[in-house]
Nucleic acid binder design. Structure first.
Length: 148
DNA sequence: GCCAACGTTGGC
DNA sequence: GCCAACGTTGGC
């Protein structure tokens, strides 16, 4: 799960007293469908910092809730406001994540690219623009072996 | 700031 | 349903 650390970093998540946060503001249909239909409570995800000086994986989260209506779409003052979504017929959904691990060191994008067994990961494909992408159990294990 | 690689929009 | 134009993402 990608987030721009200037908007919401893993440290921001750690500062929450509950160490939980709604993953709101997603305005992409494929990603919405993942949060609405494919994610399951208890699923684990890597937290990835994107569009920053050192892009890469900084820790892991556990999914606490799935398929929640995203209320930011209803608020005209919210940057993620979408007039085409209304409470009777919501267009956008979110999930809720809980902080699980913060890695001692970053697993950089270069580290991921340099790992042969990860070369088919969706996030490494050219033009990948989805803020959430599925990974396999094997990829989960291999990435954990890159931690220090 | 550049640019590739998308996704979205809207006219037809 | 097609497709051009436009907007966004995100690494570099």
């Amino acid at each position: 799960m990608k987030s721009e650390p200037s908007t919401f970093s893993i440290d921001d998540l750690a500062r929450k007293s509950s160490q939980q946060e709604n993953w709101d503001g997603v305005r992409n249909y494929q990603v919405r469908n993942m949060m609405k239909n494919e994610m399951r409570i208890g699923d684990k995800a890597f937290f990835y910092h994107s569009s920053c000086e050192k892009p890469g994986i900084v820790g892991t989260v556990t999914i606490q809730a799935v398929g929640l209506v995203d209320p930011t779409a209803f608020d005209p003052k919210n940057p993620y406001f979408d007039p085409k979504s209304d409470r009777q017929n919501p267009r956008w959904y979110m999930c809720r994540v809980q902080l699980t691990e913060i890695f001692n060191c970053l697993i950089s994008l270069a580290d991921l690219r340099n790992t042969d067994k990860l070369k088919n990961m969706q996030i490494l494909r050219p033009g990948n623009r989805l803020s959430i992408t599925p990974i396999t159990a094997q990829e989960w294990q291999i990435i954990h072996q890159l931690t220090c």
